[in-house]
Design a protein around this nucleic acid. Structure first.
Lengths: 211, 211
DNA sequence: TAGATTGTTAATCGATTAACAATC
DNA sequence: TAGATTGTTAATCGATTAACAATC
């Protein structure tokens, strides 16, 4: 059974990973919690606590942690080693951008199929075959796909979501600006432009008020 | 002077906004904190506390809050009414997707210019003119642009960021998978695919462990 | 009035930081 | 050994929830 972990920690782990990989390409083999913390402007105790949650390994006093082992531990904890297959629905601008993104494989996600309502014949984008939406349910079921990525316009997002869930997808990664309704055992992660803009606009406003 | 507000609350505000707009299009004119809370699976006290932070208006017992006034308060608090001009650098797949996205104006952001290293002549995408990167610093300075959106490959992201900052941009919205170094008075918001994938992968792993 | 909803004060919960002993 | 770094226990801080009086 896998440990429960605070979401706050979970969000920091990819950042640690990024810093650690940077250290590694700089030729380091060991690193201290304080080094990681300094790079990310976190407290060193926070980093130590987080790392203790994701690995059984203990750091070595006056030496720190072995870089490679630590990277492996975090990646394994995050599930980057077990490959999850995904489909992407909605091959518009955003869909194409995601299909061309190289970083998914490093995170244990592989987009194996794309679907679009306008796909009249099978084409491929970045080596991923694109099928018409009408064969979606069937293919997903047969291939036991676990992740559905929704990049359709918001008006069709819920309908697409319903088909994905019915076809057995376990997680939905939603880029449409709408809240989706799903059964309680389905994971939904919303990629939320409005949230980002809210944070940026509000911070900008503060800045203006102070200057 | 504008009130400080917890980031957690700030992230919930756009969600409230979305729910409130949905209520409004369903013909409602008033709503209670409990209604909003139910829709988002939050506690009603949390919603009341959050709303109290962003508006001077008081809710009316046995009636709730006036929808339209509440929407206006949140939007004004988030700074959606003061328009911030933005430029986008890197007109690849992702850049094009953002340029075609309609939702920015509702959030007080207007992408007025795009730049790309391969723009040999001025073209437009979705009515936004695209210039060559070499005229970027000059144009941004002259137009007093406040937000820079970075959608270039990660190897050129820091260089682009430096130019944006030097040209007077106050906030950076970074889509490149790299941590940017900026002066302390510059706002950076990272749009982080790896973070999202970390959350999804980890939750999927839990699911597998339990079933 | 009774009931629904409000806002506020106090209690709880969780996450971060401080202090410190342990150890290579 | 001395110094740097570790992990752990206790203290602090902040956010959420519970309890309750107020009011339309």
């Amino acid at each position: 059974m896998i440990k429960e972990i605070p979401e706050k920690t979970l969000r920091r782990l990819p950042q640690y990973l990024s810093v650690l990989k940077q250290f590694r390409s700089a030729g380091e083999t060991y690193c201290s919690a304080a080094q990681i913390a300094a790079e990310l402007s976190f407290s060193d105790i926070l980093v130590r606590k987080d790392l203790a949650l994701v690995t059984e390994d203990k750091g070595v006093p006056n030496q720190g942690r072995e870089l490679l082992a630590l990277i492996r531990s975090i990646e394994s904890f995050l599930g980057y080693n077990t490959l999850n297959e995904a489909v992407l629905v909605g091959v518009g601008m955003l869909g194409r951008a995601l299909l061309s993104y190289k970083g998914f494989n490093d995170c244990g996600v592989d987009i194996v199929l794309g679907f679009d309502i306008r796909a009249d014949k099978v084409t491929t984008i970045n080596n991923t075959p694109i099928y018409h939406t009408k064969v979606m349910a069937n293919l997903i079921k047969r291939m036991h796909i676990s992740i559905g990525i929704i990049t359709v316009p918001k008006d069709s997002a819920q309908a697409v979501c319903d088909v994905l869930v019915a076809a057995g997808v376990k997680a939905i990664w939603n880029f449409a600006p709408i809240r989706l309704h799903v059964p309680s055992d389905i994971i939904v992660h919303n990629e939320n432009m409005a949230e980002s803009l809210a944070l940026i606009s509000n911070k900008l406003q503060h800045l203006g008020g102070n200057s």
